[in-house]
Design a protein around this nucleic acid. Structure first.
Lengths: 230, 230
DNA sequence: GCAATAACTAGTCATAAAGACAATAAAGCA
DNA sequence: TGCTTTATTGTCTTTATGACTAGTTATTGC
């Protein structure tokens, strides 16, 4: 960083935390979006977000927005930094740099309308034709692509499942995000072969059609070795 | 993003682009660092960087800093966004959000001292004990970790080699970054089996000890399939 | 109740990839 | 010439993957 500096010599940048909040509801991938009530792009869908406060860390700003929109506990969520977007003209009002975050949720908690009265809603990302406010379509695409890659090498796919889930539910997460079909038998064998990916609860499902499935919970592992190839 | 806004209602944020510029000189990994001449952390090593200009994109700011410090052509370099760092107290002077970038270079171009008269130098990252200015040790560690992961799934390892390189040189990049030894025969077979990773030039090395090695150049592939496992 | 059905789980076999290691090739050098 | 060094090829074993078959265990509809 340069040594010379003078706060007033630099134009005012604002910094926001914008969130790509994803959930998988087979056969759809859904993002939590807000409909802008006013200002530029009024009426368009946008990513939920908020300005980073003067004494607030970037992560805190992201957590705050997530809690405000979903009310979901931090434990039940995976939240990671995605990338920053800062084209000079991305917001017509002023120079705003957006630090984007990716959140992965199991259940679509009822979205909470913001104090800015924007309508919040889970939207099937396949139904969007890229008509989001600002450069949010690009940010959303980056987030989805990140999620698609993450589940290959990490255990994050389990974040889209509840605390207890069946092998078929976990497989549906992969199939939905990757738009592929995976062989149930081979998937089953492979997942169980990865140490710490899932742990059996000892319980079974009941009430469904067909043979009840065993229930599993998340294991301790973070990275998948070997990875689950696409 | 919130609809309500008022530029003056927000404290002045400054945004910088800070670069983790890496090269591999087996058996060392080197980063291009500058020694701070004045200001906070005077005398300490720091990452090269600069403020993002009022009408400058984040990427342009990164490219500019890279060119200023290395003089290396953009073509010969891989430059990707790493992450953003914005703890409120990371700079004692004012609120600064750093968008960090990762650059991978083949040859250690002679570093160029900045106009701020900071001394620039390639430093063996193993010799640093984390005593960098600001939170730059954390940023550097993030960059090295990113590079270590990237060469597993992408062809970026070739970015650390010159335009023409031998299989042993490419292998040394992996061995240096991963601190492992790889079997020469198996590595050779594996690299050639990946379509578009490297292409033979038809030339051989000469003058060294032992059998001359074939020379290769980068192929067209970006991702490695299958990956080179650690 | 009793098939029929759906869904999960286990097993088999052929193929492909990876790891260990031996063997050969092509230079320089004493 | 023969030894050393490094590069490349080849072989064998083990392991992982993919396609497929068969068995298990529940619910659903006569």
């Amino acid at each position: 960083m340069a040594d010379t500096y003078d706060p007033s010599a630099f134009p005012p940048f604002a910094v926001t935390a914008d969130l790509v909040i994803l959930t998988v509801q087979p056969p759809t991938v859904r993002a939590l979006l807000v409909r802008r009530a006013s200002g530029p792009f009024a009426g368009s869908w946008a990513l939920p977000g908020g300005f980073v406060g003067p004494d607030q860390s970037l992560a805190d700003a992201a957590h705050e927005t997530l809690a405000r929109k979903t009310g979901v506990s931090v434990d039940a969520t995976h939240l990671e930094q995605l990338a920053s977007f800062g084209r000079p003209d991305r917001d017509p009002r002023m120079r705003i740099v957006s630090v984007a975050w990716l959140a992965l949720l199991a259940e679509p908690a009822e979205p909470v309308a913001g104090d800015d009265t924007d309508e919040a809603q889970w939207v099937d990302v396949a139904a969007l034709d890229g008509d989001l406010a600002f450069d949010h379509a690009e940010i959303l695409a980056t987030g989805i692509e990140r999620a698609r890659n993450r589940i290959e090498y990490t255990t994050l796919a389990t974040r889209f499942c509840g605390d207890e889930f069946t092998m078929a539910e976990l497989r549906a997460v992969y199939e939905t995000l990757w738009s592929t079909e995976l062989d149930p038998a081979n998937f089953h064998r492979k997942v169980l072969a990865i140490d710490g990916f899932v742990e059996p609860t000892g319980e079974n499902t009941s009430g469904g059609r067909g043979r009840p499935a065993r229930l599993y919970r998340r294991g301790d592992a973070v990275d998948l070795d070997p990875p689950v190839r696409r």
